[in-house]
């Protein structure tokens, strides 16, 4: 029988389809894992990053496939939206992986939203310069903003503090 600890380790293998360098555990969207050995059922509770995140259905399916392939008999994936997801739940390991992948990770705590015309000071993940500027608060996915580096001239993405 699979234990709760096993499950958490297995879920490290499930990648976020939109940012494949991160696992769903790094991303902080797995809220709970329960194993009920009497009915041989594993219950996984996940939370969406943004309301419109199109990856949630794929992630739920991947969780099922992953755990079933490890010998689970029945897997139930539930969606829980409160408390709402925040980048504060992203693991330090996940932030390091993001940076190495070329996406500037969230640094600030999410509690205070940005004021008008205010932008996060972000370090360029390529040349590490702090001379960067925001191009758009919105990027290719809901969780990212577009930046450019004034030093190496490269555009890059920033995983927004949310």
């Amino acid at each position: 029988m699979i234990t709760v600890d096993n499950c958490w380790a297995y879920l490290e293998e499930v990648a976020d389809p939109e940012v494949p360098v991160l696992s769903i555990v790094d991303l902080g969207i797995v809220r709970a894992v329960e194993v009920d050995s009497t009915i041989e059922t594993i219950r996984v509770v996940i939370t969406p990053t943004y309301s419109g995140c199109p990856a949630m259905d794929v992630i739920a399916m991947q969780i099922k496939m992953c755990l079933l392939s490890k010998g689970a008999k029945k897997v139930v994936v539930e969606n829980q939206i409160s408390p709402s997801w925040t980048t504060d739940w992203m693991s330090e390991k996940g932030k390091e992986k993001l940076e190495a992948y070329g996406i500037a990770p969230p640094k600030r705590k999410s509690a205070a939203p940005l004021g008008l015309f205010e932008e996060d000071a972000v370090t360029c993940p390529k040349c590490k310069s702090v001379d960067t500027q925001l191009s758009s608060q919105f990027g290719a996915t809901s969780c990212k903003a577009l930046y450019k580096c004034n030093h190496c001239q490269e555009p890059f993405e920033h995983f927004k503090c949310h």
Partner: peptide, 12 residues
Amino acid sequence: IALTNISLDQIG
């Protein structure tokens, strides 16, 4: 992209 992102949040 900004408008479609906002739209996606709302449709979500």
